[in-house]
């Protein structure tokens, strides 16, 4: 068998443009995921009824496949809610909630890992609890959980490869169009793998840089 990358050539820009849905969706979901995760982490730590609700949310989203969640939100919910929404919105909702659930657990561990002694020392100095959170807890927790957070971001980016099921023109969708047109499978899929790989290499490089930058105050 011979590889026909020459035939893929003219379609390469078309294929590579599929990176934008991946990048944009990952960024948006990572952003909302962080916000939701932070709120859920604090709520779960607080406990009570609200804590339990957030706990159930975290548990549920971590305990079911993103693929099925996406199908459910895009196909099943419209049936009972009686209206439709675009695929990108389903993607944003599912991936935000999904990564929020994972990030919540990461953040909770980070907050709980903070040395109580430092908080007490700050209190004993008369520092207000708002300042303790902002200047003592968050910077140290962030530094500690940064590697785990970037792991979640990488997992999120990879997870987005399922969005073609709701009609997004991502890398996977474009590669299957090319497969159908040119009758080649190996070449476009290899390109998709390489693109994902490079994307995540860049992401983990950014994580390392940020870690180094945050190392100390």
């Amino acid at each position: 068998m011979t590889l026909r990358f020459d035939r893929l050539g003219p379609y390469l820009p078309f294929l590579l443009n599929g990176i934008w849905p991946v990048i944009i969706l990952s960024l948006v979901a990572a952003f909302f995921g962080c916000v939701i995760g932070f709120i859920a982490a604090l709520a779960k730590r607080r406990g009570g009824a609200i804590g339990k609700i957030f706990g159930a949310y975290i548990d549920f989203f971590r305990g079911t496949p993103a693929f099925v969640q996406l199908y459910f939100v895009h196909m099943a919910l419209p049936q009972i809610l009686k209206f439709n929404w675009p695929g990108w919105l389903s993607c944003v909702i599912v991936f935000s909630l999904n990564s929020g659930a994972y990030l919540a657990e990461v953040m909770r561990a980070g907050i709980e890992g903070i040395d109580r002694g430092q908080i007490e020392a700050a209190k004993a100095l008369g520092v207000k609890s708002k300042d303790i959170t902002r200047d003592i807890i968050v910077p140290q927790a962030l530094r500690k959980i940064l590697p785990a957070m970037f792991n979640e971001f990488i997992a999120l980016t990879k997870e987005t490869s399922i969005v073609s099921v709701v009609g997004m023109m991502d890398l996977m969708r474009r590669s299957s169009i090319i497969q159908g047109t040119l009758y080649i499978t190996f070449e476009p899929l290899l390109v998709v793998l390489v693109v994902y790989y490079l994307l995540n290499k860049i992401l983990s490089f950014c994580g390392k840089c940020l870690e180094r930058k945050l190392k100390y105050d």
């Binding site: 209190k123 520092v127 003592i136 140290q140």
Partner: peptide, 28 residues
């Protein structure tokens, strides 16, 4: 106000690990 008048030193030092010595002192 009360805590401003009462300093405390702990067994485990409890320094702010992400701040240099002079910032540990200057922060409060």
């Amino acid at each position: 106000k009360i805590r401003e008048k009462m300093g405390m030193v702990f067994q485990n030092f409890n320094l702010f690990e992400h701040m240099v010595a002079k910032k540990n002192v200057a922060y409060a």
